[in-house]
Design a binder for these strands. Structure first.
Lengths: 227, 227, 227, 227
DNA sequence: AATGAATGAGGGTTCATTCAT
DNA sequence: AATGAATGAACCCTCATTCAT
């Protein structure tokens, strides 16, 4: 036991430096998706990752694949955070709304903004692995919010979709900028938004809560083709 | 007396169709800046305006100039809204926080999101005409917020910059989406955010309030590359 | 007699202002062909002529036609100069080489450089009217040079083509510039070139004399299509 | 010792094919600058070089940079020719005017006409490397002409600028022509011009000698438009 | 496996020419 | 007849992706 041929090792285990590069790329890409959006030039990602552009393509055959891996990586992280938050809420003495706050701020640090490619037209968000993470995430967050609602601190007229959309929006860089400066505002404004989510509700809300799923089903017109 | 020749009228007044086209362009551009950001292809703007691309360039010699006109147009509108809101607040029986709510929702309808080019690196936001509108706007909004603060309904630890940034962010379409669907959320989430702005403050806010001016001074790297 | 209907007058005689515009256009174009080459933007020509662009097109349906008229106009002028020079040489006491000098310098003033469109690929230099002028010009110049040669002051190993090419080249603006400055050099360098044409020849000349006709027959490869 | 690894060599030395392409581009560009002027389409240069247009841009980020490299390349060559000519003149038994003739004809072969971008408005002819070549060139040529003047064979009333401008002009292809045919005349007419430079001067020269420097200072309007 | 280089397609802008007033 | 406006094609340059070392 314990002895494998070189060939076997090759097949199963990638070279150490290749693994390291893979990490670097995902890291660079997730940062840059947040700063510049999902259209950031591939060469720039490669540059920030400190590798040649073709190396990037060896790891991820095209931009779609890269987006996919980034999303998967971040979604995994964020899902874990949601689960942890939920567990904290379930734990003895846990407060669900506080756990929600903790999760929201942690999600920003975990680069939840790098999930933006999900909304890109043509992105196949239903591929198995991602679906799994989304389920973990959605489940945990829904249970957490239900618990917060039940505890009487979360307004009953808001849903997971509301939180997700607002979180995504507020965590983005300002349009047309890659201002690091937005960072100064993100946590501040999320805090204010969370305050707005608390009971008693201070205003009537228009529309209804929706999940991201619902949103994705909206009539998304490719506005380009209307002539 | 009082009568001008046709020639004179011609000289001073642009042709009717040209005026119409100009309106259409600004209209299309302001919509598309909101939906896609200030980098949206010029050809797409022309297409949505229903004109040839070169016509776009006849009206606005380059993208900068177009951004400028759009911003001016929207800023004028939004400034008026802010002034109206302020006047409503000053009027007998007026409530400043309610006026603030009214303004926020109206600003979205007025396409305040189309002001995003202001944050674009290289945009000369200090040109005289725009500076004037910004002053009108800033003055009115600051007075409105001060009044709301004084009336005891607005948290004292938030500033104009907070409102502006959150408003901008929440009013944007989701990244990569051309979904009209986001509209369903905008007013809803702004309402929640406004709730969070009310007294009594329900949480401690990190950071400090900042104006858009401050933001612009942040270390902003040019958008396309960082080399 | 002497009475024509308005209709007849219209058909035969263009309006006075139209005539004036036509002159202005040719004037502007001939200047600008010299300064910028035959590719100068049509709108710029219209601008310098002080008219709208469409007016230019009413007079000359396309750039080719405009070039043609300019060439015709200048060729006529230059041909007259050549004839005058020849006559001066034939007159009693006339010196042919001196007449040649006079002609060369006068041709520059007459904007001989505006003949450059002749060499443009696709230019139909064989249209009847132009052919006539070219004949007048060539005849006069050939007789003048023959006479100068016979008088013993012009080298026998140079021909009309030599003079024409050098004249054209030295009278052009420097490449890439519309420097008025070149004017300072033109007469100076033509003078030097003419000195070089005098007897006794001070060097052996490579190649043989050629007419512009010969030149036009050269293998002119449209270099664009060699892949 | 003294041995470099493959990696090191890679880092320092560009790939062989890239070098080859670079040469081809400069070669094509220098030809085409002469034939069509500095405005020749980049795509055409790429085509003649036998590469894709983007490859051209990889080597030279923009047209300015390409002009610069071409100019540098040719200037180096021409400067060497001037120095050689000067040395030949200084050598025992050397004749300065003959050396000048040799230089002029060699400069044409060395594509001195490709220096035309120098006169383009906005071209920074003072960048260090180019300034160096220009100095080498100017020094050598001035010394050569002074020597020729001192030897009594060169007219005293002509300067470097005269030679340079006339050389540039006579070496160009006829306007609008892509005729290789002009080559037949160039050496012929330069020979005639050189003859005109010899003593005794056969005519009075208008104006005064000027350097290219002087010319550059003339009131040069930007090329594209004059508004 | 890693890389620099090459490429075609696409967006920004200008210009000759046509259209509508 | 004169004009301002509109347009498609062409050119400059960038970027995702592929190729060759």
């Amino acid at each position: 036991m314990g002895s494998v041929t070189t060939a076997q090792r090759r097949a199963s285990r990638p070279r150490a430096d290749a693994l390291r590069n893979r990490e670097r790329i995902i890291d660079a890409a997730s940062e840059m998706f947040i700063e510049y959006g999902p259209d950031v030039p591939m060469d720039e990602i490669a540059r920030r990752a400190g590798i040649g552009n073709a190396t990037l393509y060896r790891h991820f055959p095209d931009r779609t694949e890269l987006m996919w891996e980034v999303v998967l990586y971040v979604a995994d992280h964020v899902a874990s955070l949601a689960e942890e938050a939920n567990e904290a809420a379930e734990a003895e003495g846990g407060d669900a709304f506080d756990a929600l706050r903790t999760f929201v701020h942690a999600a920003v640090e975990a680069r939840i903004g790098a999930l933006c490619p999900i909304l890109t037209p043509g992105f196949d968000k239903d591929r198995a692995e991602l679906a799994a993470q989304r389920h973990r995430f959605t489940d945990a967050l829904e249970r957490l919010m239900r618990r917060a609602r039940d505890s009487g601190r979360l307004r009953p007229d808001v849903g997971v979709g509301d939180l997700m959309v607002a979180l995504t929006q507020l965590a983005r860089p300002l349009p047309g900028t890659n201002c690091v400066g937005i960072g100064r505002f993100v946590h501040r404004h999320l805090q204010l938004f969370l305050d707005g989510l608390m009971t008693p509700g201070r205003s009537e809300l228009p529309g209804t809560a929706a999940t991201l799923e619902d949103l994705k089903k909206e009539k998304c017109v490719p506005r380009t083709a209307n002539r």
